[in-house]
Design a protein around this nucleic acid. Structure first.
Length: 556
RNA sequence: CGGGGUGUAGCGCAGUCCGGCUAGCGCACCUGGUUUGGGACCAGGGGGUCGCCGGUUCAAAUCCGGCCACCCCGACCA
């Protein structure tokens, strides 16, 4: 079906389907004539803007009550001027971040508050993250499965701490098919409950253990304040959920996965991280303890980039998941869960990017090399493009891209690809063709080098490795330069607003200490690092003797 | 929920005080031509319920009343 016919069909169906239904619902909910008119116009607008609007599935057309009659769509920002107009980091870091996300076309605002559209440039990076992590999960014995989006409300209430932690930020579906549901369905904020309810049926014997499953999914948490990629109402993530026969084995798994995250962050994202344990206050709702990786952004704020939880027997008890052990006893299983999300994309941006735009580490780049051909007139165009195609004939198609667009001049393309963070740009013009060379330009340093066309692929791979290493080195240097060791609370208060990780003595078992820290300084204990020394000292707030320094910082 | 800001074409804005021609400008977009080693140029063209509702008026983007949305900064929070 051609697009026009498709649109016509949808229009007719939507109007036919929505108007009577709306009118009926309007009556049912006691809405007056005007509200109905408004809602019809809202549905019409939704139809106009949503070409995918299916008469059976469109949430906008089928919404039972016009929650907000003056519904308006958010403005979108794409398509206009590119790198021009990126706020400098030094001027306004938050605005810089937003500018980079929007202008590099990573994501866009959406008609729904707090939600975003992940555009191909951003989604391509998520796919690379998935590709590498998925491999690492499978290499460590995990398999993928998919559970469900909807969680019966009662499930969430089964684990006391868990429900307390998540209830306030849950979205709940109360209607389906035009009728009130028997039991409201929570849109998953995380899947422990539904998964453990399922695991009960899958686990009988110690021979069924360990059960090592991962899920790639979307989740929904109704946050008060959202930021592109860092905290959105709906986001994408992976959540691993494992079941084990013993506490020790679950602990080993929890530790193993936080280390997988560390390796991924450092080797693929070129992002150095601290690895450690969360305090009681900061741990996952329902866990015995939580391990995490913490990264430092360029503005000196910390960002939690991944977590791994030892859930003990809490969920097994709440959902009655037992197995018969070798000793013939019935025992509750031990659980872990671990996850990273599209927040990692935000981390990548804030660790590596610069005032010219995005900087993508080569290993996260969907196409790390872009050719910008240069020509004068049709003859040269043919020669240059033919040469570029000849050079790349045997290359992996996902290694490079030839930007043959004729409506932009090379200079424009240079800026555009820099804005989008492509690690390596290859300039190839008539002179190069004659000399058998190309010019390679690194995104990280801006350095230009002339390379021979012979063995170009290998030279580029070397360069990419160099860029990857360099990005990590710079990020690590910055992190180390922004990590401070202080002993007095006064010194801490004097320094904390400037950002950075602070190695301090704090009585982290006392939640009042953390509360006071937060009230005084808007900072928190990010983690109790694994590699903390045995050094002893007085808590900088209470003076109580502590062993080992913790990491405190302001955070996102 | 508090503070600040903004709603006029896809984006950025002018016009609003002091009501009045057909609502402008730059970028982007379309057509044709010339260009192309760091954001090209010329000519022509398309695109706007001025956030929404109501009021005042011969006449409202502009004045009055009400509402809504979004962004930023806080508060809150895995």
């Amino acid at each position: 079906m051609d697009q026009d016919a498709h649109d016509r069909l949808q229009t007719e169906e939507v109007v036919a389907a929505s108007s009577p239904a709306l009118a009926e619902r309007g009556t049912r909910f006691g809405a007056d004539q005007r509200a109905q008119e408004r809602f019809k116009s809202r549905a019409r607008r939704a139809r106009d803007y949503s070409t995918k609007c299916s008469p059976r599935g469109c949430a906008l057309c089928y919404h039972p009550v016009p929650l907000n009659p003056d519904f308006t769509l958010r403005k979108t920002v794409y398509g206009a001027v590119m790198a021009k107009g990126i706020t400098k980091r030094s001027e306004d870091y938050s605005q810089w971040y937003i500018d980079v996300v929007l202008k590099a076309e990573m994501a866009d605002y959406s008609p729904v508050k707090g939600c975003m559209v992940i555009r191909p440039t951003g989604y391509g990076i998520w796919e690379k993250i998935q590709e590498h992590l998925d491999r690492m999960f499978k290499e460590t014995g995990h398999v993928n499965a998919y559970f469900l989006l909807f969680i019966p409300e009662s499930f969430l209430k089964r684990e006391a701490e868990h429900v307390e932690g998540f209830a306030p930020e849950c979205a709940v579906v109360t209607m389906g098919g035009g009728k009130l549901l028997e039991e409201p369905l929570v849109i998953r904020p995380t899947s422990e409950t539904i998964i453990w309810d399922t695991y009960r049926n899958w686990i009988n014997s110690y021979r069924d253990l360990p059960l090592l499953i991962n899920q790639w999914a979307n989740v929904c948490r109704w946050e008060m304040r959202t930021r592109l990629f860092l905290r959105t109402t709906e986001f994408l993530w992976q959540e691993g959920h494992t079941a084990h026969a013993s506490h020790e084995e679950a602990e080993e798994e929890t530790m193993k996965m936080v280390k997988v995250y560390q390796r991924f962050a450092e080797e693929f994202m070129a992002m150095p991280v601290l690895v450690g344990r969360k305090t009681e206050r900061e741990k996952f709702a329902g866990a015995l303890h939580t391990y995490c990786i913490e990264a430092l952004m360029q503005d000196g704020k910390a960002l939690q980039a991944g977590t791994s939880h030892h859930l003990g027997q809490n969920f097994a008890k709440a959902f009655d998941v037992k197995f018969q052990d070798r000793d013939e006893q019935l025992k509750h299983v031990y659980a872990t869960s671990w996850g990273v999300s599209t927040r990692l994309i935000g981390a990548m941006i804030m660790v590596h990017s610069d005032d010219k735009g995005l900087v993508v580490p080569p290993r996260l780049s969907p196409r790390p090399v872009v050719f910008v051909p240069i020509w004068r007139g049709d003859d040269e165009m043919r020669v240059v493009l033919d040469k570029a195609r000849e050079i790349t004939r045997d290359w992996d198609a996902l290694f490079y891209h030839i930007d043959a667009r004729d409506q932009y001049k090379p200079g424009y393309k240079f800026n555009e690809w820099e804005l989008k963070g492509v690690p390596l740009r290859i300039e190839i013009g008539p002179r190069d063709v004659q000399q058998g060379t190309v010019v390679a330009v690194r995104r990280d340093t801006g350095e230009k080098t002339s390379l021979s066309m012979d063995g170009l692929r290998e030279q580029l791979e070397r360069l990419l490795n160099d860029i990857q290493d360099n990005l990590f080195r710079i990020a690590k240097q910055r992190r180390d330069d922004s990590t401070f060791t202080v002993n007095s609370y006064d010194d801490y208060k004097a320094g904390i607003d400037k950002g950075g990780f602070f190695r301090v003595f704090l009585d982290h078992q006392n939640s009042e200490v953390e509360q006071r820290l937060q009230d005084d300084t808007r900072s928190t204990i990010r983690c109790i690092p694994f590699d903390a020394s045995d050094e002893e000292g007085p808590c900088m707030i209470t003076g109580k003797a502590c062993r080992g320094r913790v990491i405190a910082a302001q955070s996102y």
